[in-house]
Structure formats: C-alpha cells, structure tokens
Amino acid sequence: QWKVGDKCSAIWSEDGCIYPATIASIDFKRETCVVVYTGYGNREEQNLSDLLSPICE
C-alpha cells in the first residue's frame, strides 16, 4: 500500500512518458493521490492504481 512520501513512478499526462515522482498526498476515498515529479516540481493527480514502482536511476 502506498503512503505519503513514497517514491514511485508515474505517467505524466502531457506526454505519456514515465517519470520518477514522490507521493505528496493521498485521498483513500477516491483512490487518488497527488504526485510531485522529481526534478521538475510539477504536481499532478493520479489514480493510486496507476502508480508504478520507482525507477532505478
């Protein structure tokens, strides 16, 4: 189960590419979260089910 502060990978809606991110907040009722893309600072809402394991850098 994901928690705030977890590192993950998420698909950015603008280009469909996968980027490393950190979970900033979680809404368990809606099963969504807000991620912050590492190195970019962009925030975006994602479905918890769409999150991927962190990418090894």
Rank of each mutant, 00 (worst) to 15 (best):
26 I>M: 03
16 G>Y: 07
53 S>I: 09
49 S>F: 09
52 L>I: 06
7 K>M: 12
30 R>W: 07
50 D>H: 05
28 F>M: 11
3 K>R: 11
27 D>E: 04
33 C>V: 11
4 V>C: 13
18 I>D: 02
17 C>L: 15
39 G>Q: 09
20 P>T: 09
14 E>Y: 15
1 Q>F: 11
17 C>T: 03
57 E>W: 13
17 C>R: 15
22 T>M: 08
49 S>Y: 09
47 N>T: 06
53 S>V: 10
54 P>R: 11
54 P>W: 10
31 E>F: 12
29 K>N: 13
54 P>H: 07
55 I>R: 11
3 K>L: 12
19 Y>D: 03
10 A>T: 03
22 T>F: 08
41 G>T: 06
54 P>Q: 05
35 V>S: 01
6 D>K: 00
4 V>P: 14
26 I>C: 03
19 Y>A: 01
7 K>L: 12
2 W>V: 14
50 D>I: 09
20 P>A: 13
6 D>T: 00
57 E>R: 08
56 C>G: 14
42 N>V: 15
25 S>G: 03
39 G>F: 13
23 I>G: 03
34 V>Q: 01
52 L>P: 03
11 I>D: 02
35 V>E: 00
8 C>R: 00
8 C>D: 00
4 V>G: 11
28 F>G: 06
54 P>D: 07
26 I>F: 05
44 E>R: 07
36 V>M: 07
12 W>G: 00
26 I>P: 05
37 Y>T: 00
34 V>I: 14
47 N>H: 12
26 I>A: 02
1 Q>M: 13
15 D>H: 04
44 E>T: 06
48 L>Q: 04
27 D>T: 04
35 V>D: 01
42 N>G: 09
9 S>C: 15
16 G>I: 08
12 W>T: 03
46 Q>K: 15
24 A>N: 04
20 P>K: 06
21 A>R: 06
45 E>W: 08
23 I>M: 02
38 T>N: 05
53 S>F: 10
2 W>F: 07
4 V>S: 06
34 V>L: 04
46 Q>E: 05
28 F>R: 12
41 G>Y: 05
22 T>C: 06
33 C>W: 11
36 V>E: 12
14 E>M: 14
45 E>M: 09
19 Y>P: 03
30 R>T: 11
23 I>A: 04
16 G>W: 08
47 N>A: 10
17 C>A: 10
27 D>F: 11
41 G>D: 03
31 E>D: 10
50 D>W: 11
56 C>L: 15
54 P>K: 08
30 R>P: 04
16 G>L: 08
6 D>S: 00
38 T>D: 15
45 E>T: 13
33 C>S: 00
53 S>W: 13
33 C>K: 00
31 E>Q: 15
9 S>K: 07
21 A>F: 10
16 G>M: 06
21 A>H: 06
16 G>Q: 03
34 V>N: 01
33 C>R: 00
32 T>H: 02
28 F>E: 12
29 K>M: 12
7 K>S: 11
46 Q>T: 05
10 A>N: 01
